[in-house]
């Protein structure tokens, strides 16, 4: 995964954004990709979907995706169009669900860099090395570089694609490695 992503900051959110507000529990019954996207932030900011529909980077504070392990929170962000989320920190179940679904996540090396972005800033992101260049301000921000296995998942487009890809080297068996 060497390609560089050029996208704008489309939204900036605060700390402790929980999965109940990202994807309300009353829709837990649905796993249809597009349907999950339709309920993204439905109760608190229904206009959010419009902001991200053409892709872009969402900058968030600490403990993003806290609360329920519901996978639809990560799915809704991805299928609404979000290209990447950059956070001070993630809740662990959201972190796993997003990676498994092939949604790009980055985490600031220095939490104060959360302040270094404004909406509409143009970014050039090198995911594999963890470097974000803010073209608008000229600043370069360092994020934690992804672990090799996580890079494999992201390069495959998600863990489902990875496990299917791995079948050929494992005699048709579904394996993570």
């Amino acid at each position: 995964m060497s390609q560089v992503i050029k996208k704008k900051v489309v939204a900036i959110l605060g700390d402790d954004v929980d999965t109940d507000v990202i994807f309300p529990a009353r829709y837990l019954g649905t796993f249809d990709e597009q349907e999950t996207a339709n309920h993204l932030f439905e109760d608190v900011d229904p206009s959010f979907r419009n902001k991200v529909k053409n892709g872009g980077v969402v900058i968030v504070g600490k403990n993003f995706g806290c609360g329920s392990a519901r996978e639809q929170a990560a799915m809704a962000l991805k299928y609404a169009g979000v290209t990447m989320v950059v956070a001070v920190s993630y809740n662990r179940s959201f972190y796993r669900n997003a990676i498994n679904n092939g949604l790009l996540l980055m985490e600031f090396e220095n939490p104060e860099d959360y302040q270094a972005f404004k909406e509409d800033n143009q970014l050039i992101v090198d995911y594999a090395s963890g470097i974000i260049k803010n073209e608008t301000t000229g600043r370069e921000i360092r994020c934690l570089a992804p672990n090799k296995f996580i890079l494999d998942i992201i390069s495959a487009g998600g863990i489902c694609q990875l496990i299917i890809k791995n079948q050929s080297k494992n005699g048709g068996k579904l394996c993570l490695l």
Partner: peptide
């Protein structure tokens, strides 16, 4: 605690 993709991958592999 995991999401459904983790669970499916675990059940398959």
């Amino acid at each position: 605690g995991v999401g459904v993709t983790d669970m499916a991958v675990l059940l398959a592999s």
